[in-house]
Amino acid sequence: MESRAGWSDPFVERVGQEVRRRRQAAGMTMQQLADASGVSVRMLSHIELGEANPSLVTVAKVAHALGTDFASLARQTRPGTLVVDAPGTATGIWSSTAGSHAVLSAASTLRPSAALWDWTLVPGDSYQAEPDPPGSEELFLVISGVLTLIADGHDDTVLDAGASARLATDRGYGYRNDGSKPVRFVRVAHVTA
């Protein structure tokens, strides 16, 4: 079963507000941001109004054109040498109609940043991602269940609980749960700008 859902409403609203705030602070028109990002004015308008369900790649392009990255648009970062988030305060980013979900747990303030995600895929569910910019990669650690990694140019790779992997994400890729139990995994995404 392919999931037919997307970003959470609070995430879409937060990204839209942050894109508008950063665009206006930079003195950019929507057309200038469209030219710099390669994203249409119409899509940018929908993003700023919180009406779009953009891909991660689209959000990353807009973020790059604004001089930042996906994690900075998605999650409020606080300065400091040690920043701790209480349980339950992580940002819910994606969910599927089947009940799968992904949470952005933490993100670095370095550029490009690294983002720590906590994913749960229910049995039979999947997530298909668009290619990231060249040089991007993800690290995975399966906490429970069995995760199948899908990457263009590679056979499907099955990771049991406790297994870890590194995947170049500059190609089509995705995650799937072919098992009978939910799979929970953490991933660290390093998307170059």
Rank of each mutant, 00 (worst) to 15 (best):
H101R: 14
G135V: 05
A165E: 07
G99C: 01
S126E: 15
E51Y: 06
G153Q: 03
E48I: 07
S144G: 11
W119P: 04
G67Q: 09
P131L: 07
L56I: 15
S55I: 08
A107H: 02
G172L: 15
R171M: 02
M1L: 06
S8N: 06
T68I: 09
D170C: 03
Q17N: 15
L33Y: 10
Y127D: 08
L56H: 06
V39H: 07
P131M: 09
E48A: 08
G88W: 04
G135M: 02
P87K: 08
N53G: 09
E138V: 01
R22L: 15
R23V: 00
A65G: 05
G88K: 01
Q24D: 14
V142N: 08
L56S: 12
R176G: 05
R42P: 13
T91K: 14
F185G: 03
T169K: 04
T157R: 14
A65V: 07
V62I: 13
Y127Q: 14
F140Q: 06
R171D: 00
A25V: 04
R171Y: 01
S100L: 03
L167W: 02
T89V: 10
V39E: 06
S72K: 12
S126V: 10
A165D: 10
D9E: 15
D132M: 13
F70T: 08
V19A: 11
W94Q: 08
V142K: 11
H64T: 10
V183C: 00
V83Q: 04
D178K: 08
A86E: 13
S180R: 11
P134C: 11
E13Q: 14
M43S: 13
R42F: 13
L33D: 06
A86M: 07
W7T: 12
M43H: 15
A193V: 11
K181Y: 00
Q24V: 11
D69Y: 02
A189R: 06
T148S: 14
A129F: 09
H101M: 10
A106E: 12
A189Y: 01
G135A: 07
Q128V: 15
T89D: 09
A168S: 12
Y173W: 10
R176H: 07
I143G: 01
P123V: 10
T29V: 11
P133D: 08
T81I: 08
A151I: 00
Y173T: 02
S180L: 12
G67P: 02
